[in-house]
Design a protein around this nucleic acid. Structure first.
Length: 264
DNA sequence: ATGGTTGCTCGGCAA
């Protein structure tokens, strides 16, 4: 079971790149973030006939997440529970599905965690609350005993190796101690960073700013992750960051990431 | 380099 996860930064601007990715990688599951598109405006026709079932949670201008699945989608949920932390949250950042692959049940989640803009800002508080909600919800899901994968743009670089210049970036957004603590607390419900487990010493980034020629200078962060619980991790066979998609013409500012699990 | 670039939408915000 091959999973590809990608923050496309506008699905309409990334159709040809996504078509190439599907052709080259033949993923069984595709988890997308930052569609910047409403559900009824999604370019469904472009991906017809490729054998995917869809769940899309979209909104105008911002956010938007999706899952394409070669397996029939047995259940789908488009909201992360609030737990009283953000009862009016209507941002399209979360989609969760249930599929069966080789007689095993897999719960698969695509998430776009808020960026937070600046440490201490209102948007930052929203980000911190979002992590608390994720942690509570994933803790509940863990009790189901299913294979569990949650992947997406988490907007936090976990360790120094995931930051091009940790000293320079210091406590800036996506790198601060607050955010690392939130990410690690979320992981502590029993989720493993598939890339880091598989490649303990590899410094590879998943996002490079459009500004200042950041990609050309490899000034990036690893903020996109495929997390899996221990049950799923026992089946992990391969991980990668598909950096070449960041070097195409008119790229997303994120590279797709990949994890492959042996299901049979 | 407190700038810079891209996307959505058509001025200014978000990242």
């Amino acid at each position: 079971m091959k999973i590809i996860c990608w923050n496309v930064n506008s699905i309409k601007q990334r159709i040809s790149h996504l078509e190439q990715l599907i052709k080259d990688e033949k993923p069984d599951l595709i988890l997308l973030q930052e569609l910047k598109c409403e559900e009824d405006k999604f370019p469904y026709l472009e991906f017809e006939g490729l054998g995917y079932n869809y769940v899309i949670s979209g909104q105008k201008t911002f956010n938007g997440v999706a899952i394409f699945s070669k397996y029939p989608i047995e259940e789908s949920i488009k909201t992360l529970p609030s737990y009283g932390l953000d009862d009016n949250d209507e941002q399209a950042r979360y989609v969760e599905i249930l599929v069966t692959a080789e007689n095993q049940v897999w719960r698969i989640i695509s998430v776009y965690v808020p960026n937070g803009q600046e440490v201490g800002s209102d948007k930052f508080q929203y980000k911190m609350k979002y992590y608390q909600r994720l942690e509570q919800h994933l803790n509940e899901l863990q009790s189901y005993g299913e294979n569990l994968v949650i992947a997406g743009d988490f907007n936090v670089a976990n360790e120094d190796i995931d930051i091009y210049d940790p000293k320079k970036l210091g406590e800036s957004i996506c790198c601060s101690a607050f955010e690392k603590k939130a990410l690690r607390s979320f992981m502590s419900v029993g989720l493993f960073d598939s890339f880091r487990i598989h490649k303990p010493d590899t410094a590879n980034f998943s996002w490079w700013d459009y500004r200042g020629g950041a990609y050309d200078h490899n000034k990036g962060l690893r903020i996109d992750y495929i997390f899996a619980n221990s049950k799923a991790m026992n089946m992990l066979r391969e991980t990668d960051i598909l950096e070449k998609y960041r070097s195409l013409e008119k790229p997303s500012d994120h590279a797709p990431i990949m994890a492959k699990f042996k299901t049979a």
